[in-house]
Design a protein around this nucleic acid. Structure first.
Lengths: 208, 208
DNA sequence: TAGTAATACGAACGGTCGTGCTATTATATT
DNA sequence: AATATAATAGCACGACCGTTCGTATTACTA
C-alpha cells in the first residue's frame, strides 16, 4: 500500500481561477442583458479566451447559466442576508430590507438586482435554470417571512400581523424600487420604497 | 382638374388584416418569451406566412417590436384604464387597481402583464423600443398618481397622503402579484396584493 | 380588359449561435 | 527529465437570425 505525501494544498489552481473570472464577468453581464443574452463567444472575447476553451469549463450553456445563478446567489447571501444575521427580531427584518435596497442601489450588479432581472426572464422557460431561480427567490421570501415570524414571537410585531403578507409587501416595495430605478434611471424610488416600509413597520411594531 | 369619385370606404383591406393577426400573435408570444425572443421566422411559421412576406409589413425587427408595444398599450388601455374612467375619486383608484389585477390574473396576455415582462428586459437597451415602454409605464404611474391626487382634492383621501408615494406602492404591490404568480405559478399572490391595497386604502380614505 | 399597385413568396446573404472534435500548451507527479 | 493530466486553442458543423432582392400573385382602378 502506497503512502504518498499528504496532498499539497492545491491540486488544480489554474482552471479554477479562470472559471471564477468567467463567472464574475458573466454574472455582471447577465444582470444587464439577461441569462439568455449571455453568449459564450462574447464572454470569451471579452476575457481574451477562445470560445471552445471557455465552453470546456461548463460543457453546455445551461450549465454555465446554472453556475452564474449560483454565483449570484452567493453574492446575494454575502451582501444582503449574512450581515443581517447578527441582528435579531424586527431589527433583523429592517436590516434585511435595508441591505437589499443598498445592494440594488449600489449596483453590486451593474444591471440592478440580478434576480429581478432573470426571474421574469425565465418564469416561462421550464428547466433547471428556472428551478434554481425559483428556489433562490423562495429562499429569500421565506427568509423575510421567517424573520417576521420570529420577531412576532418576540413580541416585537403585533400578533394580528400576517408574516407572509408582510414579507410579500416588503419584497414588492423593494422590487419596485429596483424596477423603477432601472427603467426610469432615477434613484428617488429607493427613498420612496424605504419610506413606505418604514411607515408600514411603524404601524405594526411594538418597539422602536 | 379631375374630380374623382369620393374615395371608397377602404382602399386597402387585405394587408391590414394580416398585419393585425401578426401583431396579436406577436404580442401574446412576446408576453411569454420577451420582445427579443420574438422571431420573425417563428411568427411566420405559426401564421403560415413566409418570413419575407411577414417582414415586409414592418421593414425591420425594431419596427415590429414598436408595433407590438403599441398593440399591447391599446389592449392595456382598453382593459384597465378605460373602464375605470366612469368612476370618480377613490372609487376610480380602486377600480384601476382591481382592473390591473384582473388583467394580470385573467391572462389577457398568456405571459401575464406584458409591460412587466418587457420593461425589465429593455431597461438597459437604449432605443425607440425602450423609450416607448418607458413612456407607457410612466403614463400608467401618472394615471395612478393623478387619480389619487384628484381623489384627494375631493376630500376622499386624507390631505397628508403623498399621491406619488401612494401610486408607487399600489404599482409595487400589483407588479409583485404578477411576478409571484408567474414565477411560482400560484394564484394566491393576487389575493395577498389585494389585501394589502385594500388595507392601505382604508387607512387613508375618508369615505367608504 | 388592361394596367398598376399592394401583398406575398422563395432563395440567398452574411452573421452569430451552441456544440463537437482534435491538437497544443501548461502544470503536476513521478 | 519524463510523463501523465488538466487547460486552452483551432477549426468546422448545422441551425437559426435579420435582411435583401427578384418574382409571382392578388386586388383595385381606369
Amino acid at each position: 500500500m502506497k503512502m504518498p505525501h499528504p496532498k499539497p494544498k492545491v491540486k488544480r489552481a489554474r482552471g479554477v481561477k479562470t472559471r471564477d473570472s468567467i463567472l464574475h464577468l458573466a454574472v455582471n453581464l447577465a444582470s444587464v442583458e439577461g441569462l439568455e443574452g449571455l453568449t459564450i463567444g462574447k464572454l470569451a472575447t471579452k476575457l481574451g479566451l477562445s470560445k471552445s476553451g471557455l465552453f470546456a469549463h461548463f460543457g453546455s450553456k445551461e450549465e454555465l447559466q446554472l453556475a452564474v445563478v449560483e454565483t449570484a446567489r452567493t453574492i446575494f447571501a454575502e451582501r444582503v442576508i449574512k450581515p443581517a444575521l447578527q441582528e435579531k427580531g424586527v431589527a433583523r427584518l429592517r436590516t434585511l430590507y435595508q441591505n437589499y435596497i443598498v445592494y440594488s442601489e449600489a449596483k453590486v450588479f451593474p444591471g440592478g438586482c440580478f434576480f429581478s432581472a432573470v426571474s421574469l426572464e425565465f418564469d416561462d422557460r421550464p428547466g433547471k435554470v428556472r428551478d434554481l431561480i425559483m428556489a433562490s427567490m423562495k429562499t429569500w421570501l421565506e427568509m423575510l417571512e421567517g424573520t417576521a415570524r420570529a420577531a412576532q414571537a418576540m413580541n416585537e410585531i403585533k400578533p394580528d400581523v400576517d408574516p407572509h403578507q408582510l414579507a410579500f409587501e416588503m419584497h414588492a416595495l423593494a422590487s419596485a424600487a429596483n424596477w423603477s430605478s432601472r427603467l426610469f434611471k432615477d434613484r428617488t424610488a429607493f427613498r420612496t420604497a424605504r419610506t413606505a416600509v418604514l411607515q408600514r413597520l411603524e404601524q405594526i411594531t411594538t418597539v422602536n
